[in-house]
Design a binder for these strands. Sequence first.
DNA 1: TTGTATGCGTTATCAA
DNA 2: TTGATAACGCATACAA
Lengths: 343, 343
Amino acid sequence: MKKKSTKRITIDDVARIAGVSKTTVSRYINGNHEVLAEDTCRRIEEAVKTLDYRPNQMAQGLKRQRSYLIGMVIADITNPYSVAVLRGAEDVCKKNGYSLMVCNTDNDPSKEREYIFRLQQQRIDGLIINTTGHNNEFLQQFDRERTAVVLVDRKVPELEFDSVVVNNEEVTIETVRYLINQGYQRIALFSEPFEGVSSRYERLVGFRAELSRQGHPSVNDVYLADRFVPGKIEEQLEAFIKDSKGQSRALFAVNGVVMLKLILALQAKGLKVPEDVAIAGFDNLDWTPAVGKGITTIAQPTYDIGVNAMEMILLRIQGEDSPAKTIVLNGTLIVRGSTPFVE
Amino acid sequence: MKKKSTKRITIDDVARIAGVSKTTVSRYINGNHEVLAEDTCRRIEEAVKTLDYRPNQMAQGLKRQRSYLIGMVIADITNPYSVAVLRGAEDVCKKNGYSLMVCNTDNDPSKEREYIFRLQQQRIDGLIINTTGHNNEFLQQFDRERTAVVLVDRKVPELEFDSVVVNNEEVTIETVRYLINQGYQRIALFSEPFEGVSSRYERLVGFRAELSRQGHPSVNDVYLADRFVPGKIEEQLEAFIKDSKGQSRALFAVNGVVMLKLILALQAKGLKVPEDVAIAGFDNLDWTPAVGKGITTIAQPTYDIGVNAMEMILLRIQGEDSPAKTIVLNGTLIVRGSTPFVE
DNA sequence: TTGTATGCGTTATCAA
DNA sequence: TTGATAACGCATACAA
């Protein structure tokens, strides 16, 4: 017979079994062992063990005004970039007694708003957010006094939040320079929409900066493909291929999702990498070495991004009251077979 | 001047502003609108809006004995399989007002124990777990009266938990049969260790069953590679290649991680897919169409797995008291260029 | 239709 | 070194 009535073990039970007051048990739980008599300590320890007592975090949280919960709002959890960041953040959480609540917005601003709303109800102590970029006003009125917020892969100057990003512009410049040196006559950047996503925009800026500095003809070879418009990227690719007929060409993908789309589109068109078209770009995913002779990619220190973001939050929770900081980590160009020397 | 002293808005504040008791506000919050006078409703609504009040979930949870928290313990979040399951579960959570706490164990049983311990402190209402398979005793004493547990991608008969799995044996049989029909003389299964992971084991069983049924010589072509032993898989691959010299051969990967490892190892050895070695197996990841002429894979309905798992939990939370169920979903063989017809 | 009082499981203040 | 007691923010039984 199952007994639904089994009461949950509480601090009172422990106190009763150990023959002390719950205050004393509380002290024990919170590691105030020095204050306690050795014998008391032992009795409580035993009671805890035999009852298999676990403090109720909701009660603790309510009293302490701390939830030990961290919200992680991710624009696209399907993107391995995000998962890697998550792992970094999670490891730091674990080490420090925090738990991570994961929210995937699928790039939908209204979903993002709803999740943030909920996280606030949970009274999260910190928020790591890879924002869609369309809820600035909403994020603005976030109560930063009580919950630390860190932007990841995004800069939003108007928000004055801490943020952790990659040196997008520089590493893109490095890559474009490399592609030019390899002898490509036409280099095209393929991206999803820029609005609200600073990292994409910075990559665009770097892309153009280096091309224009070198007087390269590709300064305006920028192709936009919304992933939610089917066939869009194929169409854009087609356009570039036509336009660059007879020239040596390279594609630059603004992120891993676009990279994969491009590769599939090239295959569908029967275009060979790198013979017909070279390709490079973000991100260095686990499969990028496996396609063709390997894809030249830019690796982001994703795990470290997560670690830094969470450490930032910890700092703020501990009371650090300096102005918003931006931590910039370096991306790394990894050269593989998809971008051989031309001519 | 920042004022740390800003008190959080509570139900009392709303009550005061609206000129009613907090009981009434509570009723309003919980959607008991019919009971309330229209005017009262309006006043509360306004107070809530102007104060931007959000009920404190910890307080609600403490009172209601419900956290509205679901724990998700994943053996390897790096595996896209897990992320897809997560998405499914998350969507159902969202629709029903639950939040998901993600815990990645990295296949480490002690990490798994620690996470479960913590989740219990959070008083999670449900647990979706992709267990390492080494904490059965620990999971055993889980308080199923209070928190619904669903196993994902794992069957553990001794545990009597609900579970959601794929028809591993059948779909593997289908695939092996296909490979035999394609004319491969040697077919080798590559896997990570089986112990504790029922899905891997079932795939092995299916693999052997079909080979032996057809009297195929590969019944014992099973190669084990722990991903944490560097070089192990290359070594095993080498062994198989040597052993099958001069015969047409195919590799069967037990999961996506092994699949990728195999592909990279083949490349490193200078072996061409499918000319030198064919390859097929779990999982159908986003990049599998992009490698070579595409990889023949088995697709798992990952999103649905997550959905079903979470729906199961919802049912249990609502009081469904039937014996443990196992939901079996079907995998799908997707044929691509990596397994051409031989001879 | 509304309000009062109590308790959920902790921690913290104060006194002993 | 320990213990009573009052919060924390809310939901609910009961009363009005």
